[in-house]
Amino acid sequence: MKRPGGARRHAWLWGWLLVTLPGLAIAQTSPKVHELMAAPDTVHRGFFDASLKPVLTIDSGDGVRLHTASGNPKYYEGLGVPKDKIPPDLYRVFQGVEDNLRWDHTLNGPIYVKDAVPGDTLEIRIRSVDVWLPLAGQSFTPNRGLLPEDFPYRRDRALFLDLEKKTVDYLPGVVLPLKPFWGVIGVAPPAAMGRVQSGPPNVFGGNMDNKDLGAGSTLYLPVHVPGALLSIGDGHAAQGHGEVCLSAIEASLKGEVQVILHKGKRITWPRGETATHYMTMGLHTDLDEATKMATREMITWMTELKGLTREDAYMLASLAMDLIVTQVVDGTKGIHALMPKSIFQR
Rank of each mutant, 00 (worst) to 15 (best):
A248R: 05
E311T: 09
V325W: 04
M315R: 15
D312N: 08
E273V: 06
E273R: 12
V244C: 01
L308I: 01
A313Y: 03
L305R: 06
A313K: 02
S318I: 00
G264M: 09
W301C: 07
H262N: 12
D286K: 07
V244E: 06
T276N: 11
L261C: 08
A275P: 07
W269N: 14
D286M: 02
W301A: 11
R266F: 14
A275H: 13
T295I: 12
E311A: 13
W301K: 09
K254W: 10
D312M: 01
S247L: 01
L283W: 04
L283P: 00
L283F: 03
G272T: 05
R266P: 10
L283K: 03
T268D: 13
I249A: 06
E304F: 11
Y278S: 10
A275Y: 13
T280N: 03
A294F: 07
Y314G: 08
D286N: 12
H284P: 05
H284F: 00
T274L: 08
E304H: 04
H277G: 05
I260D: 11
R296H: 01
S252L: 09
D312L: 05
T309W: 00
L261D: 10
G272Y: 12
M279T: 04
G307H: 02
D322S: 14
A275D: 15
G264E: 09
K265R: 11
A313C: 08
V325Q: 09
T309P: 05
T295E: 07
L319R: 11
L287D: 02
V325F: 07
T303V: 11
